[in-house]
């Protein structure tokens, strides 16, 4: 079954559709990711025991969540233990076929926005309000910064 292929195509159509007339506004795309993540996580975590704490939740995102969606684990998770987490994926799936290096780097933000939203939405439904941004220096490596909003 090759649902992933279809998903990849759909994702690139999402990118094209949401940025058609507004080149630099990725908020719609992020929001699509958010609402998808928010719903998806409920189905994903049905069978899971409650997560111990925030770090435990992040570990879940890095391992099982990432594996089931992107076919690999996050390569590196770092945190300052004060609500900032950095997830590094050395071959992020949506960038893998785009470039190896800095060619087309200017388009990279479009291909990570959906995932930022996906992570933010998933965390939101697990009770963690956050801001998720991504950083791409050289494709296909991508770093996701998660900042937990505590208020």
């Amino acid at each position: 079954m090759l649902v992933e292929t279809v998903f990849e195509l759909l994702h690139s159509e999402l990118v094209a559709y949401t940025t058609e007339n507004k080149e630099n506004d990725l908020s719609t795309l992020e929001y699509l990711g958010y609402s998808t993540g928010y719903r998806l996580i409920e189905r994903l975590t049905r069978e899971y025991p409650r997560f111990k704490d925030e770090l435990d939740t992040m570990k879940f995102i890095c391992t099982d969540f990432w594996t089931s969606i992107y076919k690999k684990q996050i390569d590196n998770l770092r945190t300052n233990h004060q609500g900032i987490y950095v997830l590094q994926d050395n071959s992020f799936r949506f960038l893998n076929n785009l470039s190896n290096g800095s060619q087309y780097l200017e388009y990279a933000p479009k291909f990570v926005a959906f995932t930022c939203g996906l992570v933010r939405g998933s965390l939101a439904n697990l009770g963690i309000n956050s801001t998720v941004t991504a950083e791409v220096h050289s494709m296909p490596t991508c770093k996701f910064h998660i900042q937990v909003n505590r208020t």
Binding site: M1, V3, V6, T36, R39, L40, D64, T67, S68
Partner: peptide
């Protein structure tokens, strides 16, 4: 515990739903 196949088709379904509602 996460069946990858199922997750992926649910991901597709939900993503598509988000697109349609947008």
């Amino acid at each position: 515990r996460l069946e990858s196949k199922k997750v992926n088709s649910e991901l597709l379904t939900l993503t598509y739903g988000a697109l349609v509602s947008q």
